[in-house]
Design a protein around this nucleic acid. Sequence first.
DNA 1: AATCAAATTGAATAGGCTTCAACTGTTACG
DNA 2: CGTAACAGTTGAAGCCTATTCAATTTGATT
Lengths: 246, 246
Amino acid sequence: MASEPVETTNMATGSDAMSSSNTRQSRVRKREGAIISAGRSVFTTYGYAKATMAMIAREAGVADGTLYTYFDNKDALARGVVADYYARLTGTAKEGVDTRRTTRTRLDFLARHHITSIMEERGIVEMLPLLSSNLSDYSKDELYGLNKTYVAVFDGLIREGRASGDIPGDADVAVLRDIFFGALDYGARSSLLRSSRQGARNADITRLVDRLVSMIVGTNTSTGSLADRLEAVVNRVETALKEVGN
Amino acid sequence: MASEPVETTNMATGSDAMSSSNTRQSRVRKREGAIISAGRSVFTTYGYAKATMAMIAREAGVADGTLYTYFDNKDALARGVVADYYARLTGTAKEGVDTRRTTRTRLDFLARHHITSIMEERGIVEMLPLLSSNLSDYSKDELYGLNKTYVAVFDGLIREGRASGDIPGDADVAVLRDIFFGALDYGARSSLLRSSRQGARNADITRLVDRLVSMIVGTNTSTGSLADRLEAVVNRVETALKEVGN
DNA sequence: AATCAAATTGAATAGGCTTCAACTGTTACG
DNA sequence: CGTAACAGTTGAAGCCTATTCAATTTGATT
């Protein structure tokens, strides 16, 4: 029994595993959540450069130094915020896709979901290029994995669509992915810069998404089945409602 | 003669306007060029965050304080570097387009030119999101105008292509623009992250550009005219050569 | 040559990230 | 209960870098 790690609190006492979440670990986890949440808020409001660690600490209700027991530095904290964002984004994307039926409506949903999300949390998305500074070992990065998981939702749709004959052609999935997410990211930025009113932005989104999805699926909206068109309308209504704050 | 502005050096002596470029103004302009050049070099090497004003001053051969007589702050200096980049990019884009003949080969050139340029000077392009911090008055920004001038090259191609019947459909030019530049920017990033070898990157570029141009022009490469296909090959050879440093 | 504005300098200032020695509250154990 | 051990917390101090500015140099003008 030499050199056995101490492992004090890990092997829980066994019983009441859910109610008494007031253990050390759980408090630590809760605090980590508070810090990430504070980070999201401050980074979103001020942007990476103008956000200060002091602000984040204040918002999270901890001392400056405490931040550094959870994250190595400001960069790592920002990464944590982005990672959290990616996780949520992937979750809601999967959920939404699962409640749609056809390839077209699924793609349509995914596109709308993506572009509205990044428009809302634009401040966070914009930090990304700053953070992946060292391209060399990017594949070791946590964000790399999270991004991969996220885009896998799209990749899956394309493969299924091909198998079912909904998507013609055999272009590399990576190419379609570049076009899909690239257009949405760029479109989000343009629309935010160009259109100041929410209504105009919604129109921008619909124009772009319709065209993009048609390019991939092949048929355009007006020639789709009635069921397809219905589901597409539902997608639009739902995202519109979400924006109103519902 | 009360309160008349002094205007010392502006109203030149009239004669020899070109040879004696050793005047105060010209030296100032030369120094501004040196600073932008130094900024490009340092920002490209270290990225915006790790680049220091001291490094740039040293590289430009001036004192730290001198930088501030040319640019208000680090941000403005970075903007200057990006502005310079845009100007060059637009120039070479126009040149290249003018030496191509058909809509397809012009688009093909523009796409390759864009993606190879941003892959080469990726460090500079990545600073952009950082700099356009205040979206509200972006239209007053110098970069806004430069970007507009640049994408106008694409817009012109689309309009001409429509007029000549080369490009079908009547989708909003803004939508096509989002798809075109969005896909290229995103594709550049993916390729740099994914493919380490130059050959693999060239393959990535060709796959993406071919697909993208086909999506816009409508016909795909193998059904284009012989002349079109020839010009496309020339484009590929030329960009390949440029990469080798020729 | 004298004068004046423009341009340059670099040391001083200010502000923010990060470190770390001291402190606090919790857990384990007799 | 008392107490040892320790994870977690604190905030003041150190360091680094953007930015300022009073003093100086440079170059044009008369």
